[in-house]
């Protein structure tokens, strides 16, 4: 499999002063399921936004299918269409992602931007609504949707563009268990369909369920380790240092007891 995304020594600082990511190098292969995990503020979302060309790295090189992605290349109309049609981004906050008057408009926005003809765009929108079970929401404005429905529409609005790479920022955050399970199944199905999935999360059980390759980010905004989900999740020391699990102290009768604790490790079966 060829590399679809290559990052070489990527750095980004907010306000040229607060480091968000430092010296990140990684390669993501075509069709791979890849996760960036780390504590809050470790730079996961920033890294995903750089991969989507929304933020421009202050140092380093970003290659998409071997083509350099930079402010300069985005000034080329052809490249912009090429890139946006291939890389889709689902934001953590669905509220900011949904900006069209109705759900149907939302699903049509991307394909029409890519100059796909109206009939095909409409077909795509209805097919996507079907798999996401949102057909009944077609004419609703986004502010009349629940959190789970918004997330489905946000994912749908990207799926209608048929991107090769799907970047998902904290996809299961704040969703009820049934919607979470639905999303996991959807992600597996999309992966089987050949899509490259890149997610940013601190939900270790999601990483485990999707059997992903994982990049662990430290609180110093650097990569600690890249490996399979099994390998990374077994490395409790690194997870502890990266603030993804914690040490838990409690009493058993009169005896004080201390052990490492995470919801993933705790509930694993």
């Amino acid at each position: 499999m060829k590399d679809i995304i290559s990052l070489e020594e990527i750095c980004y600082s907010y306000y040229r002063n607060i480091p968000a990511v430092c010296g990140i190098s990684l390669d993501i292969k075509e069709g791979e399921r890849f996760a960036v995990i780390g504590a809050n503020g470790s730079g996961k979302s920033t890294l995903l936004q750089i991969m989507n060309g929304l933020l421009q790295q202050s140092a380093g090189k970003y290659l998409f299918r071997g083509i350099e992605v930079s402010e300069k290349t985005f000034r080329d109309k052809e490249f912009l269409r090429f890139f946006r049609g291939r890389v889709g981004y689902v934001f953590q906050d669905s509220d900011i992602q949904l900006f069209c008057p109705t759900v149907l408009d939302e699903l049509l926005y991307g394909p029409l931007q890519l100059q796909i003809n109206e009939k095909e765009a409409m077909d795509r929108a209805f097919e996507v609504m079907q798999i996401l079970n949102i057909e009944n929401l077609k004419d609703r404005p986004s502010y009349m949707l629940s959190g789970g429905e918004k997330k489905r529409v946000a994912i749908g609005s990207v799926l209608t563009m048929n991107p090769e790479v799907l970047l998902l920022d904290e996809p299961t955050n704040g969703l009820d268990p049934r919607t979470q399970v639905f999303l996991v199944e959807l992600m597996l199905a999309l992966s089987d369909a050949g899509k490259t999935l890149v997610i940013a999360t601190h939900d270790l059980s999601l990483v485990d369920e999707l059997h992903m390759r994982v990049a662990l980010l430290s609180e110093e905004h650097k990569i600690v380790k890249i490996g399979s989900s099994g390998e990374i999740l077994a490395d409790e020391d690194s997870l502890l240092n990266a603030n993804l699990i914690h040490e838990h102290v409690h009493y058993h009768g009169q005896a004080i007891h201390k052990h490492r604790h995470s919801h993933f490790l705790f509930h694993k079966h």
Partner: peptide, 8 residues
């Protein structure tokens, strides 16, 4: 969010 879906 808009920019991420804007192709022109």
């Amino acid at each position: 969010a808009k920019k991420s879906r804007l192709a022109g």
